[in-house]
Structures are given as structure tokens and as C-alpha cells.
Design a protein around this nucleic acid. Structure first.
Length: 278
DNA sequence: ACGAGGTCCTGCGAGC
DNA sequence: TGCTCGCAGGACCTCG
């Protein structure tokens, strides 16, 4: 489930293959991922366009094209973005949503089993408005502790839900919210407005640390996620709580617990180290 | 402002 | 074996 570290890994991988290349023969196999654009206009806007720049914003991959449009792909749950330097195998072709040639042999594929992912194609102005609705990038140099506190301010919601609110801070999903809260020894269900400054300092530090470590490990592969070259990530080996219900806490040995009480999403935590969710 | 619940989508595993 | 059903979940929506 690509969150910030996974999309960052994808973008770093595919960027060198796409930048300066011309998109040829785009094929859209499914249309239900399109947002605000028809298949016909997407195809005609992509075909023959040079890719000027590839970047990440929150959990989106952004391809800036010569014609000024941005192709924005959000892989969500099961989406993968891969550049292959060979012909695709049948299994790789299956579930392909968008596919285009980016060189003599290279093919760029957006593949998505469940197709909860989305594709936008935006003009500069629409892009600015789109990105303005998303919070700041947590790994930016400018994202200091004061900024973090300001972004969390004014809500009584559970801290885990607040962290995952893309309008407040960009790119944090379920895996890294769980991990950061455990590492900061914070109860995921704690009301955001009732967390003391020292706890917030720990959370700020651990959040940035875990995101950085996950990028260094090429992301977390639980099931579908692959890097931009089709490899598995390795941060699943470093997860301390996510997916580890029933296993011993690495800090105190207590059996880790899971609940769906916060926003209906799987929360993993240690009763002893993080306290009891209220 | 906030929580609850529905929606999208398909593979998978449990249960019968 | 073959079927149904619930679940996985990020973002967005409506309702109370």
C-alpha cells in the first residue's frame, strides 16, 4: 500500500527512465481510475509528449509533460508503477491499467489489481489548487517541530487519524502512523489536543525517522507493492508493530494487540508501552 | 467539529 | 469441489 516512502522509492526508480523520454502508444485498459478526464483526451494528451520531470507529492507520482500538463497517478492500495526494459510477461500485463512505450524497449506500466488508484491530468492552475489541499511534506527541511504542532492543532480526533489526514500532513498512511506512534510510545487513540509537548516532540522525531528509514529500505512490501523496477521493498523486516498482532513487543515482550476502533482501520499497538486506547 | 457508515474494486481465505 | 461471504483499505462522500 504505497505511502510516502513507497511512492518516493517508485519515483526515484522510474525518474531516470522517464525524464527526457517521449511517451509513445499509450494504452488505457481500464477507465474507472480516471478522474475528470476522458480516455480519448488522456490518450491524445499523452501520446508523443516528452516527460520533463518526475516527482512525488504526498502519495502521488507526478509526471510533468512538455505540454505543461501533469500526469498524476495515485497508486493507493494495490497500484504499482514499473518501468520494464523488456517485453511484459502475461502475469505483468494482467491488471495493467495504463501502459506506454518510453524508449526502444522500455515500457512504463501502471498496474492496479483493485483499481482504487486514480489518474488525473491537470493544467498548471488545477495542479496548484490540487496540491494546495494537501498538507506539507513531513520530510522537507522547512517542516520543523513548530510546523508539526501547528498542523496538528485544533482537533479532538484520535492522533492516529489526525496523522493520516492528508490535509494536515502529506503522505502518512496506516503502516507508518502505527509505527511512529509505537516508537513515540503514544496511544493511537489519544485525543490530539491532549498530547503534551514532550510526547509531540517524540512523535515528530520518530515520524520523520521511520519515514526516512523506510525510504532507505525501499519501502514496505506486504503484498502488492513493488519498487519502480519491480523489486520488493525490505522495510517489512523492520516493522515493530504493523501486522504483528499476537507477537511479543520488541520493547517489553507483551503480546501486541490490534483493534479497528479508530476510524475502522487496523491499529496495532502495545498495551504496556503505549497505554490503553480509550 | 466529529463519528459512523457507505462507496469504489478484486483476490483471498474461512466456512459450509 | 464449489459456492457465498467478509475482509483488506485510502480517499471521499453523506448523514445525524
Amino acid at each position: 500500500m504505497p505511502e510516502l516512502p513507497e511512492v518516493e522509492t517508485i519515483v526515484r526508480d522510474i525518474g531516470p527512465y522517464l525524464t527526457g523520454r517521449t511517451l509513445r502508444n499509450p494504452q488505457l485498459h481500464k477507465t474507472d481510475v480516471l478522474r475528470g478526464i476522458s480516455r480519448r483526451r488522456l490518450i491524445s494528451s499523452l501520446d508523443g509528449q516528452r516527460v520533463e520531470h518526475v516527482s512525488r507529492r504526498a502519495k502521488h507520482a507526478v509526471l510533468l509533460l512538455r505540454n505543461g500538463l501533469r500526469l498524476i497517478i495515485q497508486p493507493r492500495m494495490t497500484g504499482t508503477l514499473i518501468v520494464y526494459d523488456r517485453t511484459l510477461r502475461a502475469a505483468e500485463q494482467r491488471y495493467a491499467v495504463l501502459e506506454m512505450k518510453v524508449g526502444r524497449r522500455e515500457t512504463f506500466v501502471y498496474r492496479d489489481v483493485r483499481r482504487l488508484g486514480t489518474i488525473h491530468l491537470l493544467q498548471e492552475k488545477a495542479w496548484l489548487s490540487y496540491t494546495a489541499r494537501i498538507g506539507p511534506e513531513p520530510l522537507d527541511d522547512t517542516f520543523d517541530f513548530a510546523n508539526f504542532v501547528a498542523r496538528l492543532h485544533g482537533t479532538r480526533q484520535a492522533i492516529k487519524k489526525t496523522l493520516m489526514d492528508q490535509a494536515r500532513i502529506a503522505g502518512i498512511g496506516n503502516i507508518y502512523a502505527n509505527e511512529a506512534l509505537f516508537r513515540a510510545a503514544l496511544d493511537p487513540s489519544r485525543r490530539t489536543d491532549r498530547i503534551d509537548r514532550h510526547s509531540l516532540e517524540r512523535l515528530y522525531r520518530e515520524l520523520r525517522a521511520v519515514l526516512g528509514e523506510a525510504i532507505a529500505a525501499q519501502g514496505t512490501t506486504f503484498r502488492d507493492y513493488r519498487t519502480g523496477t519491480g523489486q520488493r521493498g525490505s522495510f517489512q523486516d523492520s516493522l515493530l508493530v504493523y501486522g504483528r498482532a499476537g507477537q511479543p513487543c520488541t520493547q517489553c515482550g507483551t503480546h501486541l494487540a490490534t483493534t479497528h476502533a479508530i476510524d475502522g482501520r487496523a491499529t496495532y499497538f502495545c498495551w504496556r508501552c503505549q497505554g490503553t486506547p480509550s
